[in-house]
Amino acid sequence: MITCTQVTKRFGDVTALAPFDLNMEKGEFVAIKGASGSGKTTLLLALGGMLRPTEGEIKYKGANLYELSSSELGNYRSNEVGFVFQMFHLVPYLNVEENVLLAVSNGNQASQPLELLNQFGLSDRLTHTPSELSAGERQRVALARALINQPEIILADEPTGNLDPENDRQVFKHLSEYHKKGGTVAVVTHGSTADEFADRIVSLKAG
């Protein structure tokens, strides 16, 4: 479904991502591991259509991502991909429900937000803003936001990096449930919890 061929990213003289090949099939759960500075986040952003590789190409369903027009790329990010970040990146002035609805754009086949938030155990937190939530709750809101558009692929960058073991496990359970329904997951992680849920573990080496 998504193929990376000799994808390289350099920032000036610094190589953030060494030439890298990856082929992810639909419905696959891939854990990407590697030392700090090995380019995990860079790879994830490149897969999400947000960071053009210096060399190589990334194809999604046969189309080179970075040859798409900006509106096509916007549609890709909006409809095909769901992002989850380590720092959650919720909009601070919107409540839980609004943060989730933020991802819904025109023409999307979105899930029912209340149903989704109920599944994530957030039905009693709908009107709360991010500052009123725990870290685990915030990440669950971020997960709900990533899933609201029923994307083809979830790209998660250290989604449990700021969570306690209990929440860490819970987040992976939610990702696993999505995966079991046929979703594709690429998760960048340091932890070992991913090993339990991933179909495949990919290691990145620095430089």
Binding site: G74, R77, V91, L102
Partner: peptide
Amino acid sequence: GVFRALGHG
């Protein structure tokens, strides 16, 4: 950044 990641132009 989040807005852009969510596909907003």
